[in-house]
Amino acid sequence: MVQKSRNGGVYPGPSGEKKLKVGFVGLDPGAPDSTRDGALLIAGSEAPKRGSILSKPRAGGAGAGKPPKRNAFYRKLQNFLYNVLERPRGWAFIYHAYVFLLVFSCLVLSVFSTIKEYEKSSEGALYILEIVTIVVFGVEYFVRIWAAGCCCRYRGWRGRLKFARKPFCVIDIMVLIASIAVLAAGSQGNVFATSALRSLRFLQILRMIRMDRRGGTWKLLGSVVYAHSKELVTAWYIGFLCLILASFLVYLAEKGENDHFDTYADALWWGLITLTTIGYGDKYPQTWNGRLLAATFTLIGVSFFALPAGILGSGFALKVQEQHRQKHFEKRRNPAAGLIQSAWRFYATNLSRTDLHSTWQYYERTVTVPMYSSQTQTYGASRLIPPLNQLELLRNLKSKSGLAFRKDPPPEPSPSKGSPCRGPLCGCCPGRSSQKVSLKDRVFSSPRGVAAKGKGSPQAQTVRRSPSADQSLEDSPSKVPKSWSFGDRSRARQAFRIKGAASRQNSEEASL
């Protein structure tokens, strides 16, 4: 019999049943779409005989028809080659250093092939080196495509196609095609072959870009420019304004007297070369007005044109410092986490200390709560409330009815002989401070409620009492009544008793 458990639990079988086999339907690529829901599959020993999904071999995947050992070796080799080519560490840098020397040698020989004295001697060596480079780069490109299958997102032919569309893979295939075209054109020995050789060798310069396949330098440059984009835009904007204004004023001053400034384009060329401190010297002002304007705008514009270099330099320094700090933080993070875990385990398992309490023990206690009866409008029989619902239920009951529930009420002091009981919340009678006064009792026990209740009776009109401690106690149990005489010590004692009862009640409510 096959059962599914969608909550991750395992159904224990009877003692008479045989052992169960467990598997996940959602992990089987050969299962139909209706059953690939991630549910837990529990099947008996007879299920494989019936041809269940556990008995079927995997229909898809890279190692579907391969033995386990061969499949493990296949995956291990794939991961190894992918890490060597895409994430070089340790001795893997030897291969990348060899590729760099190969590319650099091709670049140097290409430069010498353009010089007439070394053209014949360098062409033969360059031809052999180009063949070696094409073979190495071609094999490396196909190995990269194959090894990318170790990543989940690059599996299958669609994943390989996605990997081949990456920018550096596109550069690799462009350089490979250009190198093959250069060799094919150079072997023909005609004029067209020579011109094609010179034009296609430009694409071989892109080999130097592939040295940084992970794009660390470009990411660093982009992060620095993005972090200081506002400062760079401000400096370039002001420098551009200085360039336009200086070129226009010098053009007006030199026009008609200097042949170097016949057009405004000549003035812009002079301004750009001057403000960037290049100074070719092919154009320069000759009149005193033009020289004065050139000197003034040079002092202003050079500072703004040189400002981005300082901004980028400081940004690079701060970014490198931040990377070093992050690297040290990552080195200290795992030991710190292990130290915290060890300290907590020692703290939680220390049996010699009796003052340690688990944080979840508070929620494991069961509280007896009286249940409210809507018919009699009273609190009758009580029941046990689950631990997770205790706090919310108690808050709702307290807010609606005004009752305070507590588990172990402390012993109440008995009323003394000299001070009789003053009210239901005086704190001297046991069992009276455990409940709050309802809204109805407060209204009818207050002086205003009594006056409103007995407004029509003649006794209420004739008998008038001065405010005393009895009425103030019933009005607000948490307030201290004001004494009408300064020498009345009994009223002071009563006030301290009320304060103590109120503080105890607040602490009990907070504990609930």
Results as ranks from 00 to 15, higher is better:
G281R: 01
G271R: 04
P335L: 12
K219N: 10
V250L: 12
F261I: 13
P335A: 04
A147P: 02
R210C: 00
D212E: 06
K230Q: 05
V225F: 09
D259G: 10
G256R: 08
S342L: 05
A265T: 10
K283R: 12
L293P: 08
G315R: 01
P420L: 15
D355V: 03
D282V: 03
R213W: 05
L318V: 13
F261C: 05
Y154D: 12
L101H: 07
G281W: 07
Y264N: 04
W269C: 02
N79K: 13
W360C: 05
N258S: 14
G222D: 05
E254D: 08
Q204R: 04
R291S: 02
N190S: 11
K331T: 00
T296P: 03
V175L: 15
S352P: 15
L339Q: 06
M1V: 00
R353H: 10
R144Q: 15
V182M: 12
V225D: 07
T349I: 14
P411L: 13
E231Q: 08
A306V: 12
H96P: 10
R214Q: 11
A193V: 02
L268P: 08
R214P: 00
G290D: 01
L203P: 00
L243F: 14
E119G: 13
T274M: 08
T234P: 12
D172G: 03
V250A: 03
A294G: 15
L81P: 06
P285H: 06
T263I: 06
S122L: 12
I340M: 07
D355E: 13
G313E: 11
L243V: 08
L249P: 05
A294V: 06
R333Q: 09
L85R: 04
F329S: 10
G159R: 00
A337T: 06
I273M: 04
D282N: 05
R210H: 09
A265V: 04
G301S: 09
I278F: 07
A185G: 12
L206P: 02
F104S: 12
R144G: 15
A337G: 05
Q204H: 08
I205V: 01
T114I: 11
T378I: 14
V320I: 10
S314P: 11
M208V: 02
Y284C: 10
V250G: 09
L206R: 04
S195C: 13
G189V: 03
G290V: 04
G271V: 08
N350I: 08
P335S: 14
L197P: 08
R207W: 01
A193D: 13
R353G: 01
I278T: 10
H328N: 03
F248S: 14
Y280C: 08
G9D: 15
G239R: 10
K255R: 11
I311N: 07
W269L: 05
K162R: 13
L312S: 01
L107F: 11
G215E: 01
T263A: 05
R210P: 00
T277S: 06
A306P: 07
A309V: 02
W344R: 02
T276I: 03
R214W: 11
F304C: 03
G8S: 14
K230M: 00
A317T: 14
L388F: 15
H228Q: 08
T359K: 09
T217N: 07
S55C: 11
Y284D: 07
M211V: 14
D212V: 01
E322G: 06
A196V: 10
I278N: 06
V225I: 12
S223P: 02
E231G: 05
E231D: 04
L356R: 13
A62V: 15
A337V: 07
T276N: 10
S113F: 03
T217I: 00
R198Q: 15
L351F: 14
A178V: 07
P285L: 09
D259Y: 09
L268F: 14
H96N: 14
C242G: 11
M211R: 02
L307P: 09
T287N: 02
I209T: 05
N258Y: 02
P386S: 11
L356V: 14
N190H: 09
H260Y: 12
R201H: 15
M1T: 00
D259N: 10
A185T: 14
K283E: 12
P430S: 07
Y127C: 12
N350H: 09
G279C: 02
L351V: 14
L339R: 03
G159V: 03
S247P: 01
I238L: 11
E130K: 10
F305L: 06
S358F: 13
R207Q: 06
L221R: 07
A253S: 12
P285S: 08
G159E: 12
R333W: 09
T194I: 00
A235V: 01
Q188K: 10
R325G: 03
Y280H: 07
Y237C: 07
A253T: 04
R213Q: 06
R332G: 04
G215R: 04
S195P: 15
A265P: 01
G301D: 06
A267T: 04
D266G: 01
M1K: 01
D212A: 00
K319R: 04
S199R: 13
G281E: 02
S247W: 09
H260P: 06
Q341H: 02
A343S: 09
T114A: 11
S247L: 04
C169F: 15
G290S: 06
N350K: 13
H228Y: 13
I340T: 03
T359A: 05
D212G: 09
T217P: 00
Y362C: 13
Q341R: 11
D266E: 00
A306T: 15
L200P: 00
G279D: 03
F304S: 01
L292P: 11
G418V: 15
I273N: 08
